[in-house]
Design a protein around this nucleic acid. Structure first.
Lengths: 228, 228
DNA sequence: AGTTCTAATCTTGCATACAATTACTATATG
DNA sequence: CATATAGTAATTGTATGCAAGATTAGAACT
């Protein structure tokens, strides 16, 4: 496949892995050198990532990893909550044995990770659980939208999961969500998913505000000092 | 601003205007000639549009205007319905006088267009009405998502609005939506918006299936026909 | 010292050139 | 006559070069 596509994936992965932090500059020349290609495919990869909202490409001023303001970040979580609850509603309406089994398996994996307190593993399994719900909506377009947004928020979600006993609480919420979907209770499934996602957003906002002035206070980075 | 950005807009506009139909090939060389630039900025524009899902760029095989299958199209409308109803729910919760006035003005404009049976004008005013609701959600990220999807579906919505007396029915639905939002009834606003959008998707699916074998039956499938 | 203007440097945007792959056409063959 | 195949044309992917805007450093000035 074309190089630009591979590069897009690599750069996205590097951003998700936290190698480039929000606010970091994505210099075309150094990326080209790093990957051993010319600037052309790098540019194409960056522009695509920019179009997906993953990074910020400012004309004539280069690309940086997006730095959503606390407000924007909350809006993103709120949107994620709405999309996920839509997935849950549809999943409750259309659940098939296949999808049920997939959610069950993902839930079990989460359980193990949570029991062992392995937050890095839980992070991965949690993602699988949520993706199983997206698929269970049986609307592949909606699921794609959910995937994309989930990826964009992954950096923030990871930080957030490290919080004390959030793992166990998260797991319990998962159980409740599963129960509602299985019962075919669209309304309840939607509400529970909504709250499950939104609580992350709220917690994260608190954290951001709490950390303001700490390491990388600039990253939160509006153009006028400390936010809020 | 950079040329690639302008070109992206121009190509998108041309697609929305129906100048390029679903399935049409977007040749880099001819676009470059048409806009009087080299292939480089054209490529950059096409890749961005591809990343947004607006067109289909198949590696090594060029770009074409997306041809969603009937199933995919229905999924897109269903997703739009979910996103719009989320906007409506939030709007009902957070309505401000400003947003109320904007929706009212857009609704009045729709009323005039509908009364005069001007479907082209109604198409434009209808868009304003929906965008006013997106903004009234007071979640700019969610609103952006709604804008983007609305644009991607615009080609199909336009065709659909030409149907007999759909204009007046649409207008009545708008009135009901507005009423629910003003009453602060989140649930009702969400439901009414959901149905309002989904009925378009259903009608469109019917139309597509009904027209199968008619003009452009090829659009859904191969590249054998000779459109335009 | 702080500020502002200017010049040097760095980076991005676009065009051109070439390489690599796909699509097409014509010819040969069963 | 249809199909397979080889050669050719057309199109996309990547590299390189150059021009123009942006950033930085330095000097002059208040």
């Amino acid at each position: 496949m074309s190089q630009a596509f591979r590069l897009k994936q690599s750069i996205e992965d590097a951003v998700i892995a936290g190698e480039f932090l929000p606010g970091d500059r994505l210099d075309e020349a150094s990326l080209a050198e790093r990957f051993g290609v010319s600037r052309t495919p790098i540019r194409e990869a960056l522009l695509q990532l920019g179009a997906e909202g993953f990074i910020d490409v400012r004309p004539r001023r280069g690309a940086i990893v997006s730095v959503p303001s606390p407000t924007r970040l909350f809006e993103m979580f709120e949107t994620m909550a709405e999309i996920e609850s839509a997935c849950g509603r549809l999943a409750a309406r259309r659940l098939t044995p296949d999808n049920d089994a997939a959610m069950e398996a993902a839930h079990r994996a989460c359980e193990i990770a949570a029991r062992e307190g392995d937050s890095e593993q839980y992070y991965a399994d949690n993602r699988n659980f949520h993706e199983a719900i997206y698929r269970a909506s049986r609307n592949s377009f909606l699921a794609d939208q959910a995937f994309a947004l989930h990826k964009r928020l992954s950096a923030y979600r990871r930080i957030q999961l490290r919080a004390r006993n959030r793992l166990l609480q998260s797991l319990q919420e998962h159980a409740g969500i599963l129960e509602a979907i299985r019962a075919g209770d669209e309304q309840l499934a939607a509400t529970r998913l909504h709250d499950h996602v939104l609580v992350q957003g709220e917690r994260f906002s608190d954290m951001v505000l709490g950390l303001a002035g700490d390491r990388r206070s600039d990253a939160a980075g509006s153009r006028s000092g400390t936010p809020k």
